[in-house]
Design a protein around this nucleic acid. Structure first.
Lengths: 142, 142
DNA sequence: GTTTACCTTTACGTAAACGTCAATACCTGG
DNA sequence: CCAGGTATTGACGTTTACGTAAAGGTAAAC
């Protein structure tokens, strides 16, 4: 028999509440088995949960995540179905990549600002420091 | 005189509604000048707006964004203030980088699945294709 | 002069993603 | 046999991030 988990075990492991996991079930994102009335999660449920939560950390809505998970369910395997799925998949990838560009830009600016703060020892006039860095920040900050 | 914009100009440019921009003002994220009762946005407001919206695309809450923008306002320049700001800045960076890791992993899996879909021409048995790819997907999908 | 096209404020509405009881069921140990 | 702990299903509450009228001000255009 392969390993299984209870709801609170998974909740603890992933740092969410059982309520959250039950909510995802209501939304059809996970479909655990039952032992009597208790939920039993297998490794596939666990993997899906991990996927969902990572998606959430990346900023997706549950609707987004639902769609992406549905992409993995290939349906009946008809050719048109495959083509549509592939198309959606690529759209998602494009979105993800542009999101990564945004993320990189944000990281860049924050890292830059970090360096500014590191350079700035008490006594150094602000103007001088700011001159050392490019003007982008100045346009955002005061 | 440097360039200025109306609310609907910026709204159009950034693909949001004027309501959104006014809401950000209510939250103290932008503080445009006024011409009579009409709002006038300068290049600094514009830059802040761009920053806010990029933050939003990356999945931050407005509270997060507020905090990050406040980091840029260096306060009175006292040393302790600088240190605290630097610390927060670094924490943010850490979070951003772990988010980037999540994003990369998500992109990886989706790209992998894309390749699977591309390989799968009608007639090819599913099992055979799945064997070609690693087992991670199988654990998430059906 | 009035229609059109913006702008404004105030205020209530809403969807998403859970939180938070409440009432109930099921074992397990003393 | 009863308390304690964990499970369940409703059902209503809450926060965030705006949407959506309602009611009006101003200024150019016809």
């Amino acid at each position: 028999m392969s390993q299984t988990w209870t709801i609170s075990e998974l909740a603890k492991e992933f740092g969410v509440t059982p309520r959250t996991i039950r909510f995802y079930e209501d939304e059809g994102l996970v479909t655990p088995q039952r032992d009597g009335q208790n939920r039993i999660y297998d490794s596939r449920d666990r993997a899906r949960l991990a996927w969902i939560l990572r998606g959430r950390r990346v900023g997706f809505t549950l609707a987004d995540i639902t769609e992406m998970l549905n992409l993995y369910d290939l349906g009946d395997g008809r050719e048109t179905q495959r083509v549509v799925t592939l198309e959606k998949c690529r759209d998602r990838l494009t979105a993800l990549e542009s999101q990564r560009a945004d993320l990189d830009a944000t990281i860049d600016e924050l890292a830059n600002f970090c360096r500014l703060l590191e350079d700035w020892k008490a006594g150094t006039p602000l103007d001088e420091i700011r001159r050392k860095h490019n003007a982008k920040l100045r346009s955002v900050a005061e």
